[in-house]
Simulated scan of single mutants.
Amino acid sequence: MACPICKKPTQASYRPFCSKRCADLDLAKWFSGSYAIPAASGDDDEELENELQRASEKKPH
């Protein structure tokens, strides 16, 4: 397996990285926000609100 940062062979003690340096670089990317999961668009929010409204209207009060 290759290190995801520098592509060198991994070391068992730092797996999946090759060194503490590469592990720390990866951690820094997480802390800085370089790695991010894309947020849902506003259209998705509106669709969800509509579905919730329809579901609440079907329930007997």
Rank of each mutant, 00 (worst) to 15 (best):
residue 1 M to F: 04
residue 2 A to M: 10
residue 2 A to H: 09
residue 3 C to K: 00
residue 3 C to Y: 00
residue 4 P to V: 07
residue 4 P to N: 12
residue 5 I to G: 00
residue 5 I to L: 04
residue 6 C to K: 06
residue 6 C to F: 01
residue 6 C to S: 05
residue 7 K to T: 11
residue 7 K to C: 12
residue 8 K to D: 07
residue 8 K to S: 04
residue 8 K to M: 06
residue 9 P to H: 10
residue 9 P to S: 11
residue 10 T to K: 04
residue 12 A to E: 08
residue 12 A to N: 04
residue 12 A to P: 00
residue 12 A to Q: 10
residue 12 A to S: 09
residue 14 Y to D: 05
residue 14 Y to H: 12
residue 14 Y to A: 06
residue 15 R to G: 05
residue 15 R to V: 14
residue 16 P to M: 09
residue 16 P to S: 12
residue 16 P to L: 08
residue 16 P to V: 12
residue 16 P to E: 06
residue 16 P to K: 10
residue 16 P to F: 02
residue 16 P to Y: 04
residue 16 P to N: 08
residue 17 F to D: 00
residue 17 F to Y: 13
residue 17 F to W: 09
residue 17 F to E: 01
residue 18 C to W: 01
residue 18 C to R: 00
residue 19 S to F: 01
residue 20 K to M: 12
residue 21 R to H: 14
residue 21 R to D: 14
residue 21 R to N: 14
residue 22 C to T: 11
residue 23 A to H: 01
residue 23 A to V: 03
residue 23 A to E: 09
residue 23 A to D: 05
residue 24 D to R: 14
residue 25 L to W: 01
residue 25 L to I: 13
residue 25 L to Q: 10
residue 25 L to T: 06
residue 26 D to F: 11
residue 26 D to T: 03
residue 26 D to W: 13
residue 26 D to L: 04
residue 27 L to C: 06
residue 27 L to D: 06
residue 27 L to A: 13
residue 27 L to M: 14
residue 27 L to Y: 12
residue 28 A to V: 11
residue 28 A to Y: 05
residue 29 K to M: 12
residue 29 K to Y: 08
residue 29 K to I: 08
residue 30 W to H: 15
residue 30 W to T: 09
residue 30 W to A: 05
residue 31 F to A: 14
residue 32 S to C: 05
residue 32 S to T: 14
residue 33 G to L: 04
residue 34 S to D: 15
residue 34 S to F: 07
residue 35 Y to S: 04
residue 35 Y to I: 11
residue 36 A to C: 09
residue 36 A to D: 10
residue 36 A to M: 13
residue 37 I to G: 02
residue 37 I to Y: 13
residue 37 I to K: 07
residue 38 P to H: 04
residue 38 P to G: 02
residue 38 P to E: 11
residue 39 A to V: 04
residue 39 A to C: 02
residue 40 A to V: 04
residue 40 A to H: 05
residue 40 A to S: 10
residue 41 S to G: 07
residue 41 S to L: 08
residue 42 G to D: 15
residue 42 G to C: 01
residue 43 D to P: 00
residue 43 D to E: 10
residue 43 D to G: 02
residue 43 D to W: 00
residue 44 D to M: 01
residue 44 D to P: 00
residue 44 D to K: 03
residue 45 D to G: 01
residue 45 D to S: 05
residue 46 E to K: 08
residue 46 E to M: 09
residue 47 E to F: 05
residue 47 E to I: 10
residue 48 L to M: 14
residue 48 L to S: 02
residue 48 L to P: 00
residue 49 E to L: 14
residue 49 E to I: 09
residue 49 E to S: 09
residue 50 N to H: 09
residue 51 E to Q: 13
residue 52 L to C: 05
residue 53 Q to K: 14
residue 53 Q to M: 11
residue 53 Q to F: 07
residue 53 Q to H: 07
residue 53 Q to L: 14
residue 54 R to P: 01
residue 54 R to M: 08
residue 54 R to C: 02
residue 57 E to M: 06
residue 57 E to C: 01
residue 58 K to D: 12
residue 58 K to F: 06
residue 59 K to Y: 03
residue 59 K to F: 08
residue 60 P to A: 06
residue 61 H to N: 15
residue 61 H to R: 15
